[in-house]
Amino acid sequence: MVLTARLRSAVALAGRYPVLAGTDLDVTAGEVLVLKGPNGAGKTSILRVLAGLLPLSAGDAEVLGLDPTADARALRPLVGLLGHQNGLYDDLTAEQNVRFVARAARRSPDVVPSALERLGFGGRLRGAPAGKLSAGQRRRLAIACVLAKGPRLWLLDEPHAGLDVEHRELLDDLLREVAAGGSSVVLASHEQHATVRLADRVVTMAGGLVLDGVIVAGQPPGTPAPSCPDVPRAEVTNVA
């Protein structure tokens, strides 16, 4: 089992407030891991730690073989982060936004049309300024930007927010493809949809800690789960 990311007793602070309070987490290559938990549980913070944007104050971490605090500059180009905000330029067109991300990631211009096409941006929509798009379209465009970047680790914060049923399924298909290709996907979501249809593994967080690691097929919710590293991927399936 190849680990994409590993956190041990990870502590991260926002000012003096601990947003992660000694968290352990493993992410294996090719899995879709869903983080669940109430507001303020630390889901977004864990994504930012994995992206190398939020430094650890204590504990150990390794993401794609790099220390996300010490090697943040080297790590960041390898991950794709979709946060609460979309990271778009309102005055650039959909195509210009994706093209900028692709060029900034040193990727071939060929990835731009395919990323736009994959997320449903065809025809005139490509030439529309991002500021004129609906909330769902903006979300899709932000995902197209992540796709164009071609990261090895996808970090998505509520990626389904604002998407209609058709595009939720489109996103699910995309993320399954990404995982099947060997990249890992970690997504924070409140939505049952993501847990049911997408997750290889679900982790519940509260108060900056991972409470229970894994939901295994056939176990009712609330059953104590084995620790993350010990669960063979074959035993982990979607949760109904």
Binding site: L53, V79, L88, Y89, D90, D91, A104
Partner: peptide
């Protein structure tokens, strides 16, 4: 303001630039 309005500054920090 164009970088901070929709969080694009994070995308810059995560880029290879």
């Amino acid at each position: 303001s164009i970088e901070s309005a929709d969080g694009a500054i994070d995308a810059l920090r995560l880029s290879r630039l």
